[in-house]
Design a binder for these strands. Structure first.
Lengths: 205, 205
DNA sequence: TAGATTGTTAATCGATTAACAATC
DNA sequence: TAGATTGTTAATCGATTAACAATC
C-alpha cells in the first residue's frame, strides 16, 4: 500500500478526508464528488483530485468517489488497519483526558498502562511508577508513549521513554523535546494554537 | 504594529519563535543569531531572516537579534499584549484540562466562567448552565469560548456561542464546526494529530 | 579594522489552480 | 447517448533556499 510518495501538504489533509468520509459512511451515503468534498472541507476540487491522484485512481469519471473504497484506502494509508499499544506517561489533566478520550479505542489505540510519579488509580488502571517504565517495556510491547507531564520534566521523561525503546511519542507537554532521529514525535502544542487564535483576533481589530 | 502583511507560513512559525525566545530570556541570554534559532527550531537561517524581515528590521548586522526586542515584537504581533476574557463550554476532561492549564493565565487568558449541562464545581468556579450562556454574554465581556463538548452536540453548542455574539472559538470538539465568516475558529483536532502519528509509524515500517 | 551576521534580491522548489481530454 | 466528473498536464502562485552586498 505505502508505495507511492505522498506530498507533505497532502498528508496533512488526510485525517480530515478520513474523518469526513467516516461521517458520510455513517449517514449511509455511497459516493462523493471532489466538488462536494472540497465544499465541505474548504479545499478546492482540483486539490482533492490532485491529492487522491497521488494514491492511484480511487474514483470513476462521471460518478465520483465510492465512499467505502475511499474509506478503506485512507484507513490503510494512515496506518489505521492495525492496533497500537499505548502507554500514557503523566496522569494529570491531559493524561486523564487522553485516557478517557472515546475515539482513541475505536481507532485501534489500546491503552496498556498509565505511569506517573504518584501512585493512584485512573479509569480502571493502577498507575505505575515512571521509574518502572523501562522494565515494563522489556516485557510488554509498546508502540506509542503519550507524554503528558509538566514542561519542566518533559525532556527528562522523553529521554527515559526514548531509552526504553519506544519509537513514537505523542507529545502534549508544551515544549519541544529533543530525541534521536529515529524516534517519531508528533506534537500537540495547545499554546501555539491559542497564540494563533489571539493573533487572528488581534489582526481583525 | 499590525501594518505589514505576514505570510501564512510565517504566521504558523511565530508561536515557536515566541516560546523559544521566552526560554532564552529566562536563561538570561541577551542575543541570538538566525543560525542559532534555525538550529534549535529546525528551520533554516534563511527562513528565519525572511520571516523576521516581514515585520521590519529587528536585528543588527554582525550581532544578531536582541532577545528583548524580539520578544516584545513577537508578543505584539501575536496579540499577547492584552487580556482576553474566556469562557469554557463543557466541563468534561478537556474542559478541566484547559481550566487547569497553567500557561493559560500567564499569557493573559482569563477564565471568567465555565458552562455545562450539569451543575457542579470546577476549580473555584460554579458551573453555569449552557442555556444561560446567552444572557451571561449580554452583561459580561467574552472574547473567546473554549468549545469542549462531546462531538454530537458540538455544532449545536457552536451555534449558541456564535449567536451569543462571541467572536472567537477555540474548538477541541473533534468535529469541524460551521459558523459565519466573521467568527474566528481555531481547532485542536487531537485525532488528526494521532492519525498523522500512526501514518508516520506505518510509513517507517 | 576584521569578522560576523543581517537584510534583501534572485533562483529554485513545491503546492495550488486552471483547463480539458478521457471515460464512466 | 448526453451529462458529469475524474485523471492529469500545464500555468500560476507562494514558500524556501542560495547568495552576497551592506553594515554593525
Amino acid at each position: 500500500m505505502k508505495t507511492k510518495f505522498i506530498s507533505p501538504a497532502t498528508v496533512k489533509r488526510l485525517p480530515r478526508y478520513y474523518r469526513y468520509v467516516l461521517q458520510l459512511e455513517k449517514q449511509g451515503i455511497k459516493k462523493v464528488s471532489s466538488k462536494e468534498l472540497a465544499n465541505t472541507l474548504d479545499f478546492t476540487a482540483s486539490q482533492v483530485r490532485q491529492d487522491f491522484c497521488q494514491f492511484g485512481s480511487v474514483g470513476q469519471q462521471g460518478y465520483g468517489y465510492d465512499i467505502s473504497i475511499l474509506k478503506e484506502t485512507l484507513l490503510n494509508i494512515l496506518g489505521l488497519n492495525r492496533e497500537y499499544d499505548v502507554v500514557i506517561v503523566g496522569a494529570g489533566n491531559i493524561g486523564k483526558a487522553v485516557a478517557n478520550y472515546p475515539g482513541f479505542k475505536n481507532d485501534g489505540f489500546k491503552i496498556k498502562a498509565i505511569f506517573d510519579v504518584e501512585p493512584g488509580k485512573l479509569k480502571n488502571y493502577d498507575i505505575k511508577m515512571i521509574e518502572d517504565l523501562t522494565s515494563y517495556v522489556e516485557t510488554e510491547n509498546v508502540d506509542i508513549a503519550v507524554l503528558a507531564v509538566p514542561m519542566d520534566v518533559a525532556q527528562d521523561v522523553a529521554t527515559i521513554i526514548e531509552k526504553s525503546g519506544i519509537k513514537a511519542i505523542w507529545n502534549f507537554s508544551a515544549v519541544d523535546i529533543n530525541v534521536s532521529e529515529d524516534t517519531i514525535v508528533e506534537n500537540i502544542f495547545m499554546s501555539d494554537s491559542l497564540y494563533i487564535l489571539s493573533y487572528m483576533i488581534d489582526k481583525k481589530q
